[in-house]
């Protein structure tokens, strides 16, 4: 192992021992880059110095979590996926009197608001409860605000139309200066909560779990563990939507998920599995 890799492992150990955050099963190449960015931004010189800071300076932790978390997203990112959810999954959800959706790794809320809008347009939102979770408190706070820059909003508006939206996205926001704020009413059935996929367990019976581009950061071992958690959180025949480029063929738990729409990476629990 070279010096930097050793320093990285010691940093991961220190975070776990000192603060209980376990990044031991995060894919190393991208983790290393993000940790090095933290080193640069805090002008610390080496990962070793960062480790020392993380051990001795309690107040520094949120900055570290924010640096390791990657809250990069878009509303209606990969619009064709949202189109597939509306066209193929919503009609099944419509058969339930009450619908629970869990969006894990919600970043700044981009996808959860996208879902709320499409559910509203499908006439399903009033009987839906969405749990939007992340392990980064800072982004949860930002997500709750529902504010985006005008620059981002332009892209989101295009994505929304490509996803089959029925109006124009501006129907759902108020523009002020360089920002847009999403309609407060969209939040009425969303609960934002801190949930760490590494450490926390089942908390709901979901009909659909949306977890896109989060497992890509995990090793095969942790990916498998989290797919087990998803299985245990879904009702029989429940749906799981992953990111466009995610592969789950190394996971034993994945075998219980059947391909529903392979191109859209939408899976469904078999009829004999689930709650």
């Amino acid at each position: 192992m070279d010096a930097e890799d050793i320093e990285l492992e010691l940093f991961v150990q220190a975070l776990k021992l000192r603060h209980g955050y376990d990044f031991g099963q995060y894919a190393r190449a991208s983790l290393k880059r993000r940790v090095n960015d933290l080193v640069k931004n805090a002008e610390l010189g080496t990962i070793g110095a960062l480790t020392s800071r993380v051990v001795h300076d309690e107040a520094f932790l949120p900055q570290v979590i924010a640096g390791i978390s990657v809250p990069v997203s878009e509303m209606f990112r990969n619009p064709e996926i949202f189109k597939a959810l509306s066209a193929e999954v919503f009609p099944v959800l419509a058969s339930y009197p009450h619908i629970n959706i869990w969006q894990a790794g919600c970043a700044r809320g981009e996808e959860v608001y996208s879902l709320a809008i499409l559910l509203e347009e499908a006439g399903l939102y009033d009987r839906t409860q969405i749990y939007a979770t992340d392990f980064n408190d800072h982004v949860l706070h930002v997500a709750q605000e529902g504010i985006f820059s005008v620059h981002e909003a332009r892209l989101y508006a295009q994505n929304y139309l490509a996803a089959g939206g029925k109006h124009t996205l501006s129907h759902y926001w108020h523009a002020r200066y360089e920002r847009v704020k999403l309609d407060e009413r969209l939040k009425r059935n969303i609960t934002f909560a801190n949930h760490n996929l590494v450490a926390d367990g089942v908390f709901c019976e979901a009909h659909l779990i949306l977890c896109r581009n989060v497992l890509i950061y995990f090793t095969n071992t942790l990916q498998d563990q989290v797919l087990g958690l998803f299985r245990d959180s879904l009702v029989r025949g429940g749906f799981l939507a992953l990111g466009n480029k995610e592969s789950i063929h190394f996971s034993a738990n994945a075998r219980e998920f059947l391909a529903f729409n392979s191109a859209a990476r939408i899976f469904r629990l078999g009829p004999s599995v689930g709650k």
Partner: peptide, 10 residues
């Protein structure tokens, strides 16, 4: 390090 491909949207 172990040789597999990994992706991110960093």
């Amino acid at each position: 390090r172990e040789g597999q491909f990994a992706l991110s949207i960093d």
